[in-house]
């Protein structure tokens, strides 16, 4: 039994099993990177090269023109303004929505964790179930409500919508975060005479930097990537970038400019992708934290 096992495993570095592991991981990585590669390559090729060539081929003649076109002169129907308008619209939607939903989420989480308000638990429970309600159920009534408030098809309207749909996860995120803060800290602040908002603003909020970063990453990428809510609620003047992108590409008039389409797609993905690349582990933390529902 033993002569065989002796000296069995000295060099674990490069046995067949390890080669297999790397082969699997590298081919998986190639599959995941393929669309990104195609996007980049296609976006810098002239149209005739695309029409004749292989999508995997590197560009023969390099051009940045599709990027310019995508940004400032691509057509959606009759308008030929590019998707830059969408970029600014998305920014105008994302910034206030993120700030507001984080603020409300933090306030909710704080009130739920430290102040035992009656009925708050039940509200929170319903809110958590609300996270699972398909948006389609809520869309029509929300349209009616916003119309009655004269907020339909307006910037404040779409911001309010994002605050509503972001509330479950934001509240959960902050509630769980505050639940991990020792109750004693809160009690000490109460004994020092702190009131509801003073403790929130001067003690809890400054302690919440990590979770605020996580929440901001989640909200910015989530709202930036939203399509359906922007489509329904933003109105023609405020269409976010994703909606404009889809309009540019699935426009039925004229020739399809694939290079412009790919450039537009990259441009639209640039903001969430850079956030992802810069934030790295924070992004994953957001997924993990937001995923622990219930």
């Amino acid at each position: 039994m033993n002569a065989t096992v002796t000296r069995a495993r000295r060099n674990t570095r490069l046995d067949p099993a390890r080669i297999g592991i790397y082969a699997f991981l590298v081919s998986a990585a190639a599959f995941f990177l393929l669309p990104l590669y195609i996007m980049l390559v296609t976006s810098v090729k002239p149209m005739d090269e695309i029409r004749l060539g292989n999508i995997f081929a590197l560009p023969l003649s390099f051009t940045m023109e599709p990027w310019q076109t995508a940004w400032s002169s691509a057509c959606t129907g009759v308008d030929c303004e590019g998707i830059r308008g969408g970029f600014w619209n998305s920014l105008a939607i994302v910034a206030p929505s993120t700030v507001l939903s984080i603020l409300i989420g933090a306030l909710n989480g704080y009130a739920l964790s430290f102040w035992r308000a009656r009925g708050a638990g039940l509200l929170f429970g319903i809110l958590m179930m609300g996270a699972f309600i398909p948006v389609q159920v809520m869309i029509y009534p929300l349209v009616q409500i916003l119309a009655a408030l004269h907020l339909f098809s307006s910037l404040p309207g779409i911001i309010l919508i994002h605050v509503i749909f972001g509330m479950p996860v934001m509240t959960l995120l902050f509630r769980n975060y505050y639940a991990s803060i020792p109750e004693e800290l809160f009690k000490a602040a109460r004994i020092d005479g702190g009131g509801f908002f003073r403790i929130f603003l001067q003690l809890m909020l400054p302690m919440s930097t990590p979770i605020i970063i996580v929440a901001a990453i989640m909200q910015v990428t989530g709202i930036w990537n939203d399509y359906i809510l922007g489509l329904v609620f933003a109105g023609r003047e405020n269409l976010p970038m994703t909606v404009q992108l889809n309009n540019v590409i699935n426009t039925t008039t004229g020739v399809r400019l694939y290079n412009v389409n790919m450039a537009a797609t990259i441009l639209t993905s640039l903001v969430p992708l850079s956030i992802y690349l810069v934030s790295g582990r924070w992004f994953v933390r957001g997924i993990a934290a937001g995923a622990v529902k219930g």
Partner: peptide, 11 residues
Amino acid sequence: GEDMTWADPAD
């Protein structure tokens, strides 16, 4: 009495 320096833990 047996050299186990490189033996698998289970062995």
